[in-house]
Computed example of a mutant assay.
Amino acid sequence: MRALTIRQPWAGAIAHQNKRVENRSWKLPAKHEGARILIHAGAAPDKNAIVYGPHLDVYSAVVAVATITECHWSEDGTCCGPWGFDRAYHWTLADVVALPEPVSTKGRLGIWTPGDDLIAAVEAQFSNAT
């Protein structure tokens, strides 16, 4: 399993507000299409973002798990509803599950490989919920 660090409030919007597209300046490597990933809220906020609601103040923690279903380029952003940016790669997400409790950890740039202890801590939340 891999992880992707996303600045707040975007990570929280993926976990709790039905944001199902991640806007990136770079194309998703084909080997990650269809992959299940951890959504990690970065240590710093996106100071240009305006999104309101709860769960947007968690930093340096895994907040959700999702599947990257595809990646496409969008000139005008309209293909992915209100969350899609102009002139960006849209990584579409599905099967998003917010964690009951965020799991604190440092993130990294790009798609990164979390340690076994982090994966175990995330998976424990799902096994404890059933």
Rank of each mutant, 00 (worst) to 15 (best):
V58E: 05
G53S: 09
A44Y: 12
V97F: 05
R87K: 07
A11G: 01
R20L: 13
T92Y: 04
V63S: 10
T69D: 07
R7L: 11
A35H: 09
L118C: 13
H90G: 01
G84W: 06
A49K: 05
A98S: 01
R36V: 07
G110P: 03
P54Y: 02
S60N: 15
R108E: 12
A88I: 09
A64L: 09
G77W: 12
V21K: 12
Y52E: 10
K106P: 05
W112D: 07
G115E: 15
I111Y: 12
D76S: 06
W73I: 11
L109A: 08
H40V: 06
E101M: 14
Q17T: 07
L38H: 00
A11S: 04
W112A: 09
G107K: 04
N48Y: 14
I111R: 08
D76I: 09
L56K: 15
W83T: 07
L38F: 00
V65S: 02
A49R: 03
W10S: 04
G12S: 02
L118Q: 15
T67A: 00
I50N: 07
G110C: 04
I37S: 03
A88K: 05
P9R: 10
I68R: 03
L4I: 05
T5C: 06
R7H: 12
A44M: 14
A44W: 13
A11C: 03
I68L: 11
T92V: 06
Y59N: 08
V65E: 04
G77D: 15
T92L: 11
G115A: 11
A30V: 14
V97S: 08
A94L: 06
T69M: 02
G107N: 09
G42H: 04
H72W: 09
E70M: 12
T113E: 15
T67R: 00
T113A: 12
L56C: 15
G107V: 09
H90K: 04
R36W: 02
W26H: 10
H16G: 10
I111W: 12
F85T: 03
K19T: 03
A44F: 13
F85S: 10
W112Q: 06
T113W: 09
C80L: 10
P9T: 03
C79L: 02
N23V: 07
G81H: 13
N48F: 15
L56V: 13
P29F: 15
Q17S: 11
S60A: 08
S74W: 08
C79N: 01
H55N: 11
T5Y: 03
I119E: 14
L118T: 13
V122R: 08
V96H: 10
N23I: 01
V103M: 04
W91Q: 10
A13L: 03
E123N: 10
W83N: 06
L4V: 01
I50D: 00
A13T: 02
H72Y: 07
F85G: 05
K27G: 07
V51T: 00
A3P: 07
C79Q: 03
V51R: 00
R87S: 12
G81M: 12
E33Y: 13
R108L: 11
D95Y: 01
S60E: 12
I6M: 08
D117L: 05
L38Q: 01
P114F: 06
W10C: 10
D86Y: 00
Y52C: 05
A88M: 13
I39L: 02
P114N: 05
F85L: 08
A35C: 13
V58T: 01
W26L: 08
R2Q: 14
W73H: 14
P102D: 11
A44N: 13
T78R: 06
I6Y: 07
G84Y: 10
I111T: 08
V21Y: 15
